[in-house]
Simulated assay, not measured.
Amino acid sequence: MTLAIRSDRPLCTGCLLRRLGMTTHGEVGPFSGQISSIHYERGQVVPPHCASSSFVMIRNGLLKVEVSNEAGEPGVAGFLFPGEPVVTNTLFRSAIVSALEPTTFCILDLKTVAHLPDRSGSMFCAVIEELSAQAAYDQQRLIEARIGKVRDRMLRFLEQIEQRSGKRSITLSMSRDDIAHYLDTTPESVSRAISQLTREGVIERNGPRHFRMIEQKRSLAS
């Protein structure tokens, strides 16, 4: 579903338009007509998009990225959070991107922006930088997710969610199977790692999927 964006609505904190000195959609000027918003419900698959024609950033929600191996079997390659560009399904034809929560995207039409006289060069530079940085972050996180003991992998995973969401209290919208696949382990090992971190006082469990990170305990346990 495509949504209209009010001109007085503030830009997201991580929006690349902020890097060009704008704070609301009304300040985007000639770019405002090139920005649209699309909403996906939980479980919906996000259609692939072309990086040369559009720039897609998550406004709210959560995405799961799956990439098929040589045998054609899908595996969890990562998760995308608000303020992060959707880059993976532009790099891998076999990638499947789906919403784990109700998710809204902001989409910038780059083909139209290219014909605008003001700041189009700065816009394209910002887009290239964002896509390159996101691809590098995704690769680094995937490597780190599979190094060390399962307890350490799980802690690193939770710390990344805390950092990317900007919240000490976090909710795991992804399934244990998805987490296990991403961390290259089993769902049972994920459960044991969570129990161990809870016993150590590194995390506080407030439900099956709700946790709070304890900073002072974390430094002692590391």
Score class of each variant (00 low, 15 high):
Asp177Trp: 02
Arg93Glu: 14
Gly72Glu: 04
Gly207Thr: 03
Glu215Ala: 14
Arg199Ala: 15
Leu131Asn: 14
Arg6Ile: 00
Lys167Asp: 12
Gly14Arg: 10
Glu73Phe: 00
Glu159Cys: 13
Ile96Glu: 14
Arg199Met: 12
Arg141Asn: 09
Leu3Pro: 01
Phe31Ile: 09
Val150Lys: 09
Pro30Glu: 05
Asp152Cys: 04
Ala51Arg: 15
Arg205His: 02
Arg153Cys: 10
Lys217Ser: 14
Ser169Asp: 04
Gln34Trp: 06
Arg176Asp: 11
Tyr40Trp: 12
Thr90Gly: 10
Ser189Asp: 14
Gln134His: 12
Arg218Ser: 15
Gly14Leu: 02
Ser165Cys: 06
Gln160Asp: 15
Pro30Ser: 06
Phe79Thr: 03
Leu62Pro: 01
Ser37Asp: 09
Asp138Ala: 11
Asp138Arg: 05
Thr23Tyr: 06
Arg153Met: 09
Ala135Trp: 02
Arg209Gly: 00
Thr2Ile: 12
Gly148Val: 04
Pro117Val: 02
Asn69Tyr: 07
Phe55Ile: 04
Asp184Thr: 10
Leu91Gln: 14
Thr13Pro: 00
Thr185Gln: 05
Ile143Ser: 08
Glu129Arg: 12
His49Gly: 15
Cys125Tyr: 05
Leu183Pro: 06
Gln140Ser: 13
Tyr182Ile: 03
Arg93Thr: 15
His25Ser: 05
Val65Thr: 14
Ile58Phe: 06
Gln196Pro: 02
Gln139Thr: 07
Gln216Leu: 11
Glu200Gln: 14
Ser132Asp: 13
Glu200Phe: 08
Val65Lys: 04
Leu197Trp: 10
Ile143Leu: 09
Arg209Pro: 00
